[in-house]
Write a protein that binds this DNA or RNA. Structure first.
Length: 447
RNA sequence: GAGGUUGUAGCUCAGCUGGUUAGAGCGUCGGAUUGUGGUUCCGAAGGUCGGGGGUUCGAACCCCCUCAUCCUCCCCA
């Protein structure tokens, strides 16, 4: 019998961690609700056909596949098996997989329930997702996303609301962030201005790395991806633009680029109606990988703490199209709860009060007073107060040590005298103050 | 998927070029203290040295495999 262990990239969460995680979830959820989003949950597993092809070749490789039940080799593709062709074999031995994100399952849900939905449909979803990535700092194989998406409207008011949601949630978590915003149409405008619209994706991937590899690195990467020197010069020129307004001349011949500028202008106009607490920054190098984004894109980074993005999102013109329902636009954002946890922990920003669940512990000396303690505890519980009774009557030392370890703020000592008078000896653990109280008075004090 | 790092008590880590019975601090448990904790003192328990195989008279230490960890790339939350 070997020691038990966990699969790579997964974790247990102890009581304190769960309380802290719930603090994050509750905070984000409250903001979602305030903006009119409705809850949705979908299964951990989806049909593999729902998932494959939605995240690019890389994404497909990172999907966890679930082996079919029963005699899965009976129906396996014999040729693929003989040829040891895993990709070909897969379809015949695994028909399900674990969800990779929350957006695709949402799109699937919308298509399946289109007749029942009032559009625009605003939903939020807080659930785990799984990726067979190599775990490292801030990267896990099982992690939670907190998503808010709107489907069925192309109004830019939602882009503004989603930016406000980021701002509000991180304000409540007291975590200073930068909300970066860009627009895929602006990126396409750059490609058009440089005369390389067909290399839009290559260009995007390269300039996304600017803050990581620097201008020289980007130049090199652009060249490696087969983009000519003239085009590279144009791109660099545009990237150096100091403001949105300065881009206008460069996009004189790019209708898409102009559209991108207009969209961002509109979003900023909405946002100017109500000041944000965090910085929102136009970042022309922001690209984001998922290929289905078509309009505004978002990314959130913590200030003062090195961590990959702790949130991201954007607009997609046609996500449900792959499920046979074209023309439904959507926009959404995601919070990376696990990374937010790591950042809050690193910056020591979790509230102290999260670990006080039980308010008081009852301590007794013998069988008779143990009964009395139990009776008192029951009355407090009936009044809605979280209470514990120490399991063994006897030495106070142990009972006090337990209270200290559990961070319980009060201890009630129920001895012979107290039992006869219907009182308890209440001690405040923080101040050391002690007083004799009747049970009703105790309920009044703690309730 | 590619490359590297680390793995010794519950935790953090020592452990010399391979050499008797693998140590420390913290924590845990018991006692000093049978109605008052976080201090102090005394004592105790706790190890398949991540797992498997190999080299050797002898392996925590060297070699191979494997599992896990942390990090970089890729990609992302």
């Amino acid at each position: 019998m070997s020691k038990p262990s966990l699969p790579e990239g997964t974790r247990d969460f102890g009581p304190e961690q769960v309380r802290r995680r719930n603090y994050i979830f509750d905070t984000i959820r409250a903001v979602f609700v305030k903006f009119g989003f409705q809850p949705l949950e979908t299964p951990a597993m989806e049909n593999l056909s729902t998932l494959t092809g939605k995240y690019g070749d890389e994404g497909d490789k990172l999907l966890f596949k679930i082996l079919n039940n029963g005699d899965y080799l009976k129906d396996a593709d014999a040729d693929a098996l003989a040829q040891r062709d895993s990709n070909k074999l897969l379809r015949s031995i695994a028909k399900r997989g674990l969800r990779y994100d929350l957006t695709v399952p949402f799109a699937r849900y919308v298509v399946m329930n289109r007749h029942a939905l009032a559009l625009p449909f605003k939903r939020y979803q807080i659930q785990p997702v799984w990726r067979a990535d190599r775990p490292q700092r801030g990267r896990y194989r099982e992690f939670y996303q907190c998503d808010a998406d709107v489907i069925g409207s192309d109004s830019l008011v939602y882009e503004a609301e989603l930016a406000q949601i980021y701002d509000e949630a991180f304000r409540l978590l007291r975590l200073p962030v930068v909300i970066k915003i860009n627009n895929r149409k602006i990126l396409f405008g750059i490609a058009e201005a440089a005369g390389i619209p067909e290399q839009f994706m290559d260009m995007t991937v390269a300039i996304d790395k600017l803050d990581k590899i620097g201008p020289d690195g980007v130049r090199k990467e652009l060249a490696e991806r087969g983009i000519g020197p003239d085009a590279i010069a144009t791109i660099e020129n545009i990237l150096a633009a100091p403001s949105l307004e300065a881009l206008r001349p460069a996009f004189a011949h790019s209708e898409t680029g102009q559209k991108g500028l207009e969209e961002l202008d509109r979003v900023f106009r909405y946002l100017s109606q109500s000041p944000l607490h965090n910085e929102i920054r136009f970042d022309i190098t922001l690209a984001r990988g998922l290929s289905y984004y078509t309009g505004c894109i978002f990314e959130v980074a913590a200030k003062d703490f090195a961590m990959g993005s702790i949130g991201g999102g954007g607009r997609y013109a046609d996500l449900t199209g792959v499920f046979g329902m074209p023309g439904l636009p959507g926009v959404g954002v995601s919070f990376g709860a696990d990374r937010i946890y790591d950042v809050l922990e690193g910056l020591n920003l979790f509230p102290e009060t999260l670990d006080q669940s039980v308010k008081i512990l009852f301590a007794a000396f013998d069988d008779a007073t143990h009964d009395y303690a139990f009776a008192c505890a029951s009355r407090l519980r009936a009044a809605g107060i979280a209470v514990e009774v120490y399991p063994e009557p006897g030495k106070l030392k142990k009972q006090f040590e337990y209270v200290a370890k559990r961070n319980i703020p009060y201890i009630a000592i129920t001895g012979e005298t107290e039992m006869q008078n219907g009182t308890v000896q209440l001690k405040n653990q923080a101040t050391g103050e002690q007083q004799t109280l009747g049970v009703e008075e105790l309920i009044g004090l703690l309730g």
